[in-house]
Design a protein around this nucleic acid. Structure first.
Ligand SMILES: [Mn+2]
Ligand SMILES: [Mn+2]
Ligand SMILES: [Mn+2]
Ligand SMILES: [Mn+2]
Lengths: 216, 216
DNA sequence: AATAAAGTTTAGGCAAACCTAAAAAATATA
DNA sequence: TATATTTTTTAGGTTTGCCTAAACTTTATT
């Protein structure tokens, strides 16, 4: 499989999860920073290879072998992210771009040994579950902070927005994986929330609370 | 720089070191497992980019910026080899192919942190010196075992032949980096040598003694 | 239902990195 | 030195992955 094919499969997997139905060439191409015509071409090729189901004008969906392939790449991506964060002291916002390259290295032994070296981690530094070698993923029912009520408490397990600026903001506010977030108050007029993290109270905007995932 | 350009620069660097003069398209293409016509094309492109000096029919030579670029890739290759051997328990003969891919990952921070994580190693698992971030390499006067006399003692610092079968042979014979090799005897009829390694005597063929490097 | 807008595909090109086959140059041999 | 052999370059193709512009299909609006 080529680098480009791998990136398409991974993208289709993510977008398929988000929305329900077939992923349109428009959405897919925007996600990959390419043109719709390019997406159409690639989708046709993946269909011929038996990795996706594609009906013209109806979008694309991974079939079983496509999903297994996608999960293998996601496994590699998340293991490398874990390596970069835990062993090389990369910060939350720096790991993604490098992992985007490393995920395409071809060596079964490499990824097996990396997994072992890291102590068989279950989650990556963004709180996303790492698929096992057969492509099995732990299903998590994660909630957004915005879905909690005053009085509730959640443990931060990830983010939705992975932009540098947001991740840097979280770093500054000392919000990291495992942080316990207690909801103190909810302001109706702007949907912001007052939360307590490690005995420190702060106000999070609606945008912020919608982009932080917690396990309750 | 593209992956292919990087591989060409690295190859030219190695071949230039071996022979003295300009590297011919024939030699270069054989080394890279490509056709001479492809080498000519690439060389012309590298010349236009100012990385090599190329005169038709006269072969190619790296100029200063080409050499710096080559050494940066070699630095990455050797750091990754060290990582694979030291941290992921790859054996001597397994590391090269994976490092051949990893050397092309683009991230200054990655290689800086990897270097730190490994404790700023000076040599790779084959005994070759790792260039520093400015492209400076330690010049080593290494000798082949075949150049030693009975009574001499050397410390194994690398190999010339990096084929799997040779490296596996060395593994079986417990010859590794740092092994102290004492020359017991030299057989004139077949140029083989009796050597002592860790209180064990064995006979090495001429082919073997010519492909093991030692520091005396 | 007819028309306008938006989304999707097709057609035709382009650059990178390969290739084969033919032409040209350098080198070896008679 | 003339000819044969080897090496190198050039010319023309192919594949992958991208693009733009035009044609077509679907969806939204009047
Ligand atoms: Mn990627
Ligand atoms: Mn992640
Ligand atoms: Mn390489
Ligand atoms: Mn090496």
């Amino acid at each position: 499989m080529t680098l480009s094919e791998e990136n398409y499969l991974k993208s289709i997997y993510s977008l398929q999860r988000e929305h329900g139905k077939g992923v349109s060439t428009n959405v897919l191409s925007k996600y990959l920073d390419a043109k719709p015509a390019s997406a159409t071409e690639m989708i046709k090729k993946l269909d011929e290879k038996g990795l996706v189901r594609y009906q013209p004008y109806q979008g694309v969906l991974l079939n079983e072998s496509g999903e297994i392939s996608a999960l293998k790449i996601i496994r590699k991506h998340r293991l490398w992210e874990t390596f970069l964060a835990q062993k090389l002291d990369f910060s939350w916002d720096e790991i993604h771009d490098v992992a985007e390259q490393l995920e395409h290295i071809k060596s079964d032994k490499l990824i097996q040994q990396l997994d072992k070296f890291l102590g068989y981690p279950k989650y990556d530094p963004h709180g996303d579950p790492i698929p096992d070698e057969h492509g099995h993923v732990i299903k998590m029912e994660k909630k957004r902070v915005s879905q909690l009520q005053p009085g509730d408490t959640g443990t931060c397990i990830g983010v939705n927005d992975t932009s540098s600026s947001f991740l840097q903001f979280l770093d500054q506010q000392n919000i990291r994986l495992g942080s316990v977030i207690h909801i103190v108050n909810f302001q109706d007029f702007d949907k912001s929330m007052t939360v307590r993290i490690e005995d420190r109270e702060l106000i999070l905007s609606q945008i912020a609370t919608e982009n932080i995932y917690v396990r309750i």
